[in-house]
Amino acid sequence: MTPKISFRNVSKSFPLKGGDFLALDRVDLDIADREFVTVVGPSGCGKSTLMSMAAGLTEPGTGDILLDGAPVAGPGPDRGVIFQQYALFPWLTVRKNVEFGLKLMNLPQDERRKRAEHAIELVGLSDFADALPKTLSGGMKQRCAIARAYAVGPQVLLMDEPFGALDALTRVQLQDQLLDTWSRERRTVMFITHDVDEAVYLANRVVVMAARPGRIHRVIDVDLPYPRTEEVRLSPEFSRIRNEVWHSVYHQAPAA
């Protein structure tokens, strides 16, 4: 079966004074259709660069990035991108923010409204559809950003530390909300995080990256049942996997 997303021998360098900086070095990774994969690693390991290339926002230096076996040639509606910053239009309501991408697709107004309402319901914001972003909490703003990404019907969700700026309680609540939405819609998800607990709690697999240069260090299966619950989070098996990921992230041997 063809993977949904494939990174094939991907390397990326950035020019610096005195010479190029090798950010990613020969990365090979496959993500299956409908799989939820988290990517975790030390600061500077190239997590966000990897996701940016999958989104078509950055070109690889060498190697190939494939979506359903076809090369990624730039951004497209088949990939929804969600960043740590909400990037909502402050003068538009929740509904209008969610409809924005649909308007760019030249969909009829009735179809835009139908798809926006469905996405807003998915993230639990139906009661706030007519609210402006300034009236929303940080967690609600991020849910609006997720709804906007879902509304255009992407095959893949690319999420770059979307909960990183939130308080601990809101972060846990949004993790559960995201998994509930994913269980109903089952899009392929590549989720970047620096939080080991979050990486394990969400994923089918955790990709651990090593830094300088960025490369795949380990891929760890998370054999925990869905739906993920507080009982799962407190289970001995969760602790075992979490400790395995933690050790892989923070006790790596230096690159050769």
Rank of each mutant, 00 (worst) to 15 (best):
M1G: 12
T2L: 12
S6I: 02
R8M: 07
S11K: 15
S11I: 06
L16H: 10
L22N: 04
A23D: 14
D25V: 03
L29Q: 05
D33Q: 07
E35S: 08
T38Y: 04
G44C: 12
K47F: 03
L50R: 10
A55N: 03
G56Q: 00
G56Y: 00
G56P: 01
L57T: 00
T58P: 13
E59A: 12
T62A: 10
T62C: 03
P71G: 02
P71N: 13
P71S: 11
P71L: 04
A73W: 01
V81D: 00
Q84S: 10
W91Q: 13
K96F: 01
V98N: 11
V98K: 10
F100V: 11
F100M: 14
K103H: 05
E111N: 03
E111P: 06
R112N: 06
R115S: 01
A116M: 14
H118G: 07
D127I: 08
F128A: 10
A129H: 09
A129Y: 09
L136E: 06
M140V: 02
C144D: 01
Q155A: 12
V156H: 06
L158Y: 05
L158E: 07
M159Y: 10
F163R: 08
D167W: 02
A168H: 07
A168R: 11
T170S: 02
Q175H: 04
D176N: 13
D176M: 10
L178F: 13
T181W: 03
E185Q: 15
V189H: 03
V196E: 04
Y201P: 14
V206D: 15
V207T: 11
V208P: 14
A210Y: 12
A211E: 12
V219G: 06
I220M: 14
V222T: 14
P225D: 15
Y226P: 06
P227Q: 04
T229L: 05
R233D: 06
P236I: 00
F238A: 11
R240Q: 13
I241A: 14
I241E: 15
E244G: 15
V245C: 15
W246M: 12
Y250G: 10
A256V: 08
